[in-house]
Simulated assay, not measured.
Amino acid sequence: MNRIVVASLLAASALVSVAKAQDVPTIRVGWTIPAEEAKYWMMRRPDKFPNLGKTYKIEWSQFQGTSPMSQALIAGALDCATQGVLPIAQGMDKDTFAVYVVGQHVGEKPGSFSVYWAVKDDSPIKTVADLKGKTVGISIIGGGTHGPFNLMLKRAGLDPEKDIKLVEVSFSLSEDALRAGRVDSTNMNQPFAARAEAKGGIRKLFALEEALPNIVHIVEACRKDFVDKNPELVRAYVKDFTAALKMALANRTETMQVVSEITKAPIAVLDTYLLKGNDFAREPGGAPNFAGIQAMFDVYTNEKMLSKKLDAGKLKHPSIVAPIE
């Protein structure tokens, strides 16, 4: 009889444990590659975050870029995700979805890496004006860098619609397209820029920072309805996001290991740029640069990529925004 009682108690205890585990709230988070070191730390070193898995859980979903994550946010399939500034602006412009920007992954600052357009060393193209009549590559036509790119051309007296032939060339294929002569100039991003520079034979023509300083590339955004309904849950997530980015910046050696585990890139390759002066800028606490986002909104509006002027201040929650200690 005692054995039966003990067995019953153990079974009841197990049921309670399962129920408690099921009660732990879950955030559905989208991620991609590269430049999301905070998330990579949370995925590969979860033991560093005492609340992760106990106070809340994360259901991670990998995507090929930020645009599919925008659609997943709109569909309600994700609660938080990495986003570019343009998809957020387009969502605000069309009233298709509303988010809070709760953190920032990478951007540009004076002295940091800036997305740039390269030409071959022996190219006769010496200035932006020399691009007239040439074939120029860009990662995504109508993408986040397109507005500042147009601005740079206009400053050089070129009409972006008439004076160049613009073609899409992904960052991973930019070096090959340039060396093979399929384009006269094309955009370069890390880690592909570091690889191309190491081989030699190319030079920088201009960088985006010359058109628009302090560009914000990718941020962490959460659906407004989800945040408003689950403020403490999202606060716990942003607190860990803040801690994770600080860990990533404080321990470069371990961060390279973590990034290598996620991306499968050799540490020797990561060591040529990751968290060095030729990498994008990261805020120690992951604080979003709302002024930079506003400047980008204004460029997109001026370039007719948006139908109206937007206010980046609407993206900021009164209290749930990195850094949260």
Results as ranks from 00 to 15, higher is better:
residue 29 V to D: 03
residue 213 P to I: 06
residue 247 M to H: 12
residue 123 S to G: 08
residue 36 E to F: 13
residue 102 V to R: 02
residue 70 S to Q: 11
residue 86 L to Y: 14
residue 208 L to K: 09
residue 299 V to D: 01
residue 287 A to R: 10
residue 291 A to H: 07
residue 249 L to A: 04
residue 24 V to T: 12
residue 195 R to S: 13
residue 149 F to S: 03
residue 178 L to G: 00
residue 111 G to N: 05
residue 160 P to L: 06
residue 150 N to K: 13
residue 272 T to Y: 05
residue 274 L to R: 01
residue 285 G to Q: 00
residue 270 L to H: 01
residue 57 K to F: 03
residue 149 F to I: 09
residue 12 A to Y: 09
residue 288 P to Q: 06
residue 105 H to C: 12
residue 157 G to T: 00
residue 72 A to Q: 13
residue 158 L to V: 02
residue 193 A to K: 02
residue 152 M to R: 15
residue 317 H to Y: 08
residue 90 Q to V: 14
residue 254 E to T: 10
residue 162 K to W: 08
residue 323 P to F: 00
residue 163 D to Y: 05
residue 217 H to W: 12
residue 28 R to F: 05
residue 252 R to I: 14
residue 243 A to C: 09
residue 123 S to I: 10
residue 29 V to G: 03
residue 11 A to Q: 10
residue 212 L to H: 11
residue 212 L to E: 13
residue 128 V to L: 06
residue 315 L to S: 04
residue 168 E to S: 14
residue 185 S to T: 00
residue 244 A to P: 02
residue 265 A to I: 12
residue 248 A to G: 14
residue 95 D to V: 07
residue 289 N to H: 12
residue 80 C to G: 04
residue 150 N to C: 14
residue 73 L to C: 05
residue 261 E to V: 08
residue 143 G to M: 08
residue 65 G to Q: 01
residue 237 Y to D: 02
residue 46 P to N: 00
residue 151 L to R: 15
residue 137 G to W: 00
residue 56 Y to D: 04
residue 163 D to H: 12
residue 307 S to K: 15
residue 180 A to F: 10
residue 138 I to L: 15
residue 131 L to N: 00
residue 224 K to P: 08
residue 58 I to K: 01
residue 315 L to M: 06
residue 248 A to Y: 03
residue 171 F to V: 04
residue 242 T to S: 14
residue 92 M to E: 02
residue 240 D to L: 04
residue 203 R to T: 01
residue 171 F to P: 00
residue 37 E to L: 13
residue 61 S to E: 12
residue 159 D to G: 02
residue 105 H to L: 13
residue 49 F to I: 02
residue 294 Q to L: 02
residue 228 D to M: 04
residue 212 L to A: 15
residue 55 T to D: 15
residue 37 E to P: 08
residue 297 F to N: 03
residue 183 V to W: 02
residue 179 R to C: 06
residue 88 I to V: 15
residue 250 A to N: 15
residue 15 L to C: 13
residue 5 V to D: 10
residue 322 A to F: 04
residue 85 V to C: 11
residue 213 P to Y: 06
residue 86 L to S: 07
residue 284 P to C: 06
residue 240 D to E: 14
residue 12 A to M: 11
residue 185 S to Y: 01
residue 211 A to G: 14
residue 7 A to V: 12
residue 170 S to I: 10
residue 62 Q to P: 06
residue 308 K to G: 05
residue 45 R to M: 11
residue 4 I to N: 12
residue 42 M to L: 14
residue 214 N to P: 05
residue 1 M to C: 09
residue 223 R to W: 09
residue 201 G to L: 07
residue 242 T to V: 06
residue 85 V to T: 15
residue 33 I to A: 05
residue 137 G to P: 00
residue 227 V to D: 04
residue 218 I to G: 04
residue 195 R to M: 13
residue 68 P to G: 01
residue 137 G to I: 00
residue 245 L to T: 11
residue 140 I to Q: 11
residue 51 N to W: 08
residue 60 W to H: 04
residue 209 E to M: 12
residue 109 K to M: 15
residue 136 V to R: 02
residue 238 V to E: 00
residue 264 K to S: 11
residue 99 V to A: 09
residue 301 T to D: 09
residue 287 A to L: 05
residue 320 I to W: 00
residue 238 V to Y: 01
residue 243 A to F: 10
residue 138 I to C: 01
residue 130 D to M: 10
residue 272 T to W: 04
residue 28 R to I: 02
residue 114 S to V: 07
residue 13 S to H: 09
residue 231 P to H: 07
residue 264 K to A: 10
residue 258 V to I: 15
residue 193 A to I: 08
residue 188 M to L: 14
residue 24 V to A: 07
residue 116 Y to D: 13
residue 184 D to K: 05
